[in-house]
Amino acid sequence: MKTTFTRLFFPLVTLAAAASVTWAADVPALGPDGFSLPMSDSGVPTYLIEMKDGQLIPPQLVVPAKTRFRIVARNIGSKPAEFESNQLRLEKVLFMGAEAYMNVTPLDAGSYDYFDEFSPGVDGKLIAKPRS
């Protein structure tokens, strides 16, 4: 009871610590142009974000600004997840094993966050930067 209590009141601390560990473990692969590698690029670049029990993989995506793209959120964890980003205007509930395609409108350069609403505390970061 005591440990769950602590986890309830300090989710930020514990989860942020966990996130910084995973951050170091898998630094997202960037292509030679400095952008994240899309999983497919047939017309609209499509980026994969996997969700595993509160963990966001990758924790950071670099995408071109002012360009439409798509995000595929896939839940590979053992619990349901909700991919959410108010800043990107996306929200999708995912059962275990489920995945969803979402369109993102052209973004201004800057950084945006995304998270799992069912496991709050860990933020993923999406960086939109102009193509040089």
Binding site: K66, S85, N86, Q87, P106, G110, Y112, D113, F115, P120
Partner: peptide, 22 residues
Amino acid sequence: AWFYSSVWNTSHILSESSLIGD
């Protein structure tokens, strides 16, 4: 294009990924 452009940005003050922002 202006439909897609951010008009202002207060995410450094209150982001929707925080409980209150959400």
